[in-house]
Design a protein around this nucleic acid. Structure first.
Length: 864
RNA sequence: GGGCGCUUAGCUCAGUUGGUUAGAGCAGCUGAUUUACACUCAGCAGGUCGGGGGUUCGAGUCCCUCAGCGCCCA
């Protein structure tokens, strides 16, 4: 500890500059391996960070600088506090965003039916029409492109001084991540936490994949209410139903009204007949039916939306799902036993003519015409705007199709998951509400299978029976020691490749895992689950992330850790806000208001960007402000110059010890410094780096402008006197502390100035403590400094209003004030007179404070 | 519809448990200027703390209510 703080030399450049510090110190840190994790560390001494792996297929923007600076600042603080900081870095490269980027970048499309071409190269420029290539070729291109993307990301991370240990770099498509992911899956399966089922699934008809509840978003879309008359089965009249989706009439399995709704109560338990198809369906009651909506009675179809799924499940209704994976209507058989249909032949004929193979929109047009001509459509169609569920990356409304998917049981663990959310420490605390309302609102289990290509495959195969049918009930799983496996090229135990897809043989599970199913294991991947490392770093200390992925990444990570380890995956989470453009709009590629960071680093310096980022408090959306970059740059320059000034004059002798601080003003400054250390340390421990910065910054500017000005004549005088030694010791101590307080936020400039008088990096130096200071009475801190500065200000004000130089001579100063104030001034009288160029200073005890300043060669100027 | 956050100087934001005259930076204005720093320094000006009501000796801060903005969930 002591050694790292003891100055070894003084070597101050003539013209210090903040330009070029990034490359110099980044290289030096690499060389000295400052950020390398100590693998022998015990869990107690470790501070581990569950770094967010960014989506590398996205574009780099200023938001990355913002959100990655925050955990880095925290990491640097704890490193200086003596923790063994485990700070890995990952890249999230699997998943749909990468597939889309590859499709557009190369002009290709994956067709799993095509054979692999080992010599395939994509066209130089993407053509107008996408070229179909095999799955393996497609995946190879994904791997290739993400590798170059990752280099660009890594360059930025290094440029802004993110202090990760690059020895722990991972990517979510790597073999290691796939192994962890498949192992996690197999163990969930063993414990019964995951299941596969043929079930209603949220489905994007363009991407041809299932999506999960977390990937939904509502979009306002035009729609129309159609009032449709259903004949009562007893012919006692009609029941009118408003619907926005008349094309689902064939899938109608019931009508539903609220149990308390007097209008429909008498009808509960009776039946109606669907128009056009003549299918008899019951009228049922359910709380979710909204009496205010339309006529107050709704059609339940399998499946128009997620409410239909709830009704279908809770009311035990039959399934008549006809929308296929391409969004077109599938064949229906009205002669089937499950139907209670008046005239099956007529229904079949109508369906086959107006519905079969049609898109949703085409079928709707046909149905509406037919309803109108039969008189079942009541009144006019009423156009409305209503929220429609979309896949967040999709372009057309989601459909709900029935398909076989893998689900994680989240619903039945809702209460435990809510409790985990309460257990977690959130910064800021109010972000816990986001998690709670998400978990409370879950209505389907977490679907983790995607019908896509670039992802982690499910380590499973199914037997094919003698008739060529897939037997989903007799799953064949990979063995742990064989992981990772790809069931599309690997073969299950006891089979050979030539048995693939033939009767009596097998097929591999065709799907890949949702990207969150892998990234939710980031602590296991980064911490190398299964090795000795894992016990040293898990559960992690900190999960930093943005608030938009609380319902996905944070939630999913908690689910996995709760199941696997019966614990939280991390004790604290630090939620960062979004970056807004200067007009306070969210930055996004589509609006075109994103800001590219690299040119800003060149213009202002990485420290300036970090300064701006560190000003954003946890959770607060922050506007991008170039003005803040200028101020950050200015602060960096000031740190250089102040350090140069202090150290440049201390190069001819030893720096006096703390015990040699004897002058009251010096002791008072150190008392204030002690308060600053305590407060800033407290701020950092509570993840309030912004406040720590603010305190340090304001102390630093006062130190430069007031304290240094006050003592510079005493400190740099000719004779080696006790007052001179007192000032020199104070300057050295304060500078040392301030350089370290700024180090987490401005790592480049602080390491530059630290090396002017120390051998090793400031980032390996200990965090400042009160033990470094002389013994002090802290409670009255500022009682001398404050009054002295007030008099100094009065002198400056007098000079400023007389429009003369601050160096102008002052003939006399008269201070009138209460006794304690005068006593403080007296303690620092010589410094004050020297700093102000004052010839004579007199005091008089009075209740009101006033300072009278008489400039040399001038009129008396009074001021208060 | 439910929830969360925000609303303080022209702009960006601090303001810890209610307690002197509400702070900072930027921008503006007035000046200074060779001995650390023009990427500087000093000074000035600028606010009925979103509106209304309440609790209190005392409210930017606590309570109620209204309005606007943003986000989350349904």
């Amino acid at each position: 500890m002591e050694d790292a703080l003891t100055p070894t030399h003084r070597q101050v450049p003539d013209k210090p500059t903040v330009d070029g510090l990034e490359e110099r110190w980044t290289n030096q840190w690499d060389k000295e391996k400052i950020y390398r994790f100590n693998r022998d560390a015990t869990r107690e001494s470790v501070f581990s960070i569950d770094t967010p792996p960014p989506t590398v297929s996205g574009s780099l923007h200023i938001g990355h600088v913002f959100s990655y600076t925050h955990p880095d600042v925290v990491a640097r603080f704890w490193r200086m506090r003596g923790k063994d900081v485990f700070y890995p870095m990952g890249w999230d490269d699997n998943g749909l965003p990468t597939e889309r980027r590859v499709e557009n970048f190369y002009g290709v499309r994956c067709d799993p039916a095509l054979p692999y071409d080992p010599k395939y190269r994509p066209p130089e420029k993407p053509g107008k029409n996408k070229v179909s290539i095999s799955r393996k070729n497609f995946v190879e291109l994904c791997v290739e492109l993400t590798a170059t993307d990752e280099v660009a990301f890594k360059n930025l991370w290094r440029a802004i001084g993110v202090s990760v240990d690059w020895g722990f770099e991972y990517s979510t498509i790597s073999k290691e991540a796939q192994t962890v992911s498949q192992r996690g899956f197999l163990q969930m399966l063993t414990r019964g936490e995951v299941y596969s089922a043929e079930a209603p699934t949220l489905w994007d008809i363009d991407f041809r994949t299932a999506v999960s509840q977390a990937e939904l978003e509502d979009r306002e879309r035009p729609g129309a209410y159609h009032r449709v008359a259903f004949d009562r089965a007893d012919n006692a009249g009609t029941v009118d139903v408003d619907t926005t989706r008349p094309e689902l009439l064939a899938s109608c399995v019931a009508l539903v009204a609220h149990p308390e709704d007097e209008r429909y109560r008498p009808l509960l338990g009776t039946s109606v007949v669907t128009p056009l198809f003549g299918v008899e369906v019951p009228i049922l009651a359910h709380e979710l039916a909204d009496p205010e909506k339309g006529t107050g009675i709704a059609m339940i179809c399998t499946f128009g939306d997620t409410t239909d799924v709830v009704w279908w499940r809770e009311l035990n209704l039959p399934t008549r799902a006809f929308i296929g994976r391409d969004g077109r209507f599938l064949p229906a058989d009205f002669a089937d036993d499950g139907w209670s249909v008046r005239d099956a032949e007529l229904a079949q004929e109508f369906y086959d003519r107006e519905m079969l193979n049609k898109t949703v929109n085409q079928a709707r047009a046909g149905i509406v015409d037919a309803l109108r001509s039969t008189g079942a459509l009541i009144g006019d169609v009423r156009e409305i705007t209503h929220p429609v569920k979309f896949y967040e990356k999709g372009e057309r409304p989601l459909e709900i199709v029935t398909s076989r998917q893998w689900f994680v049981r989240t619903l039945e663990h809702r209460d435990e998951l809510l409790a985990r959310g309460e257990e977690l420490r959130w910064h800021p605390d109010y972000m816990r509400h986001r998690y709670r309302s998400w978990v409370e609102g879950l209505n389907v289990d977490w679907n983790i299978s995607r019908q896509r290509f670039f992802g982690v495959p499910f380590p499973a195969w199914y037997p094919v029976d003698e008739n060529g049918e897939i037997d989903f009930d007799h799953l064949m799983l990979a063995h742990d020691e064989d992981l990772p496996v790809d069931p599309s090229s690997d073969v299950p135990a006891g089979f050979t490749e030539d048995q693939r897809g033939v009767p009596g043989g097998f097929v591999g599970d065709p799907d890949v895992m949702d990207t969150w199913a892998t990234s939710s294991l980031s602590p296991q991947i980064a911490g190398q689950w299964g090795t000795e490392l894992f016990q040293r770093v898990f559960p992690m200390d900190l999960r930093p992330q943005a608030h938009d992925i609380i319902r996905t990444w944070l939630f999913a990570t908690i689910v996995r850790s709760h199941f696997q380890f019966d614990s939280l995956p991390f004790s604290d989470t630090l939620i960062s806000g979004f970056i807004l453009d200067p007009d306070r709009k969210k930055m996004s590629k589509s609006i075109g208001n994103t800001v590219t960071p690299m040119p800003l680093i060149e213009q202002f310096g990485a420290d300036a960007l970090r300064y701006w980022a560190a000003g954003g408090r946890p959770g607060a959306d922050t506007a991008f402000d170039e003005g803040q970059l200028k101020i950050g740059r200015r602060l960096g320059i000031k740190i250089l110059n102040a350090s140069k000034f202090v150290l440049g004059r201390l190069d001819d002798a030893e720096i006096p010890a703390p015990s040699e601080v004897t002058e009251p003003i010096d002791l008072d400054l150190l008392a204030m410094l002690a308060k600053l250390i305590t407060a800033a340390t407290d701020d950092y421990e509570n993840y309030d780096y912004a406040r720590a910065l603010e305190r340090s910054e304001s102390f630093f500017w006062s130190f430069c402008d007031d304290y240094v000005e006050l003592v510079k004549i005493r400190a740099y005088g000719e004779d080696d006197t006790a007052p001179r030694r007192s000032a020199r010791a104070t300057l050295a101590i304060t500078l040392s502390v301030l350089q370290r307080l700024f180090a987490p936020i401005m790592p480049f400039v602080t390491d530059e100035v630290w090396h002017w008088w120390h051998q090793h990096s400031v980032h390996a130096a200990p965090w400042p403590t009160l033990q470094e200071l002389p013994t002090l009475e802290v409670s009255g801190a500022g009682s001398t400094y404050g009054p002295v500065c007030e008099v100094l200000e009065a002198i400056r004000r007098a000079k400023s209003s007389a429009k003369v130089s601050q160096r102008a001579e002052v003939a006399s100063v008269m201070v009138r004030a209460p006794a304690p104030f005068l006593a403080s001034v007296a303690l620092c009288q010589e410094d004050l007179m020297a700093a102000g160029g004052v010839a004579t200073l007199t005091t008089r005890e009075e209740t009101e404070l006033s300072v009278e300043v008489v400039l040399a060669d001038s009129q008396s100027i009074g001021s208060q």
